[in-house]
């Protein structure tokens, strides 16, 4: 039934026979050797593989951070090769949110400043971006830390700040690169819950790059990648209880 529902909508992101090579001649390295993948609006998807498998490259290409050597990426049905640099920048700014393992917070700026950064880049006015950033910090229970410097936060608080920053632009897709890689199990579980809540409650598409099978198993689909090729796509065994409640709610 979920399958039928997906088939009716245009994938938000679609990779068609994407290849990516680095270097040339003897040094040529093929990171992706022809990958096709549709990411549907509202689903959660895990890209799993060992380091060097090409999973990060696939994420970068899907996130329009990197151009494929060959093949196309479609964003909501539109070929991204036809987009100008400014349009690509706008698409990343308005449509995507990024959560990285290493946080990438500006250490000596306040949490609020860090969270406001995407809005600042988007050119949102001072008062509006402050309001929205505070709202999203409230949502992630970090409002009391808004004035603290990012460097003073604990690992879990940092990653929640990063999620707040990814959310502040109300993105349709969140890319998470090893989001729990730098966190202890308990904190990591909290961060995972937040991400899957956002996916379920707000319909934000979640693309998680990880080598953690346990985290991957919570996603709707697991895409296994090895040596630049998709070797397996596993749909999550339908959780009968939850699927039923979802159906009931839909009905």
């Amino acid at each position: 039934m979920t399958g039928a529902h997906h088939a009716m909508t245009t994938p938000i992101l679609s990779a068609r026979d994407v290849r990516k090579s680095y270097g040339r001649g003897a040094n040529r390295f093929d990171a992706l050797k022809g990958v096709s993948l549709d990411v549907l609006e509202g689903e959660s998807i895990a890209i799993i593989g060992k380091s060097g498998s090409g999973k990060s490259t696939l994420m970068h290409v899907l996130a329009l951070l990197d151009q494929p050597t060959d093949g196309t990426i479609e964003l909501a049905g539109e070929d991204t090769r036809s987009l100008s640099g400014a349009a690509l920048n706008r698409a990343r700014n308005q449509t995507f949110g990024f959560v990285f393992q290493q946080f990438f917070l500006t250490p000596n700026a306040s949490v609020l400043e860090n969270v406001m950064l995407p809005l600042k880049i988007a050119g949102v006015g001072r008062a509006e971006r402050r309001r929205r950033a505070l709202a999203v910090l409230e949502q992630l229970e970090l409002a009391d830390k808004a004035k603290n410097k990012a460097v003073s936060l604990s690992g879990g608080q940092k990653q929640r700040s990063v999620i707040a920053r990814a959310l502040v632009n109300r993105p349709r897709v969140i890319f998470a690169d090893e989001p729990t890689g730098n966190l202890d199990t308990a904190t990591g579980a909290v961060v995972e819950d937040i991400l899957f809540d956002l996916n379920r409650e707000h319909g934000i598409t979640l693309i998680i790059v990880t080598h953690d099978e346990e985290l991957a198993s919570r996603c709707d689909r697991r895409v296994h990648i090895r040596d630049g090729l998709i070797v397996d796509i596993v749909e999550r065994a339908p959780d009968a209880e939850r699927a039923a409640t979802a159906e009931e709610r839909a009905a």
């Binding site: 640099g85 920048n89 990343r92 700014n93 988007a122």
Partner: peptide, 16 residues
Amino acid sequence: TREIGLMKAMGMGSGK
């Protein structure tokens, strides 16, 4: 470097 990378990932243009 990383901050520049982040800002560009978040859609900041090269001109800016």
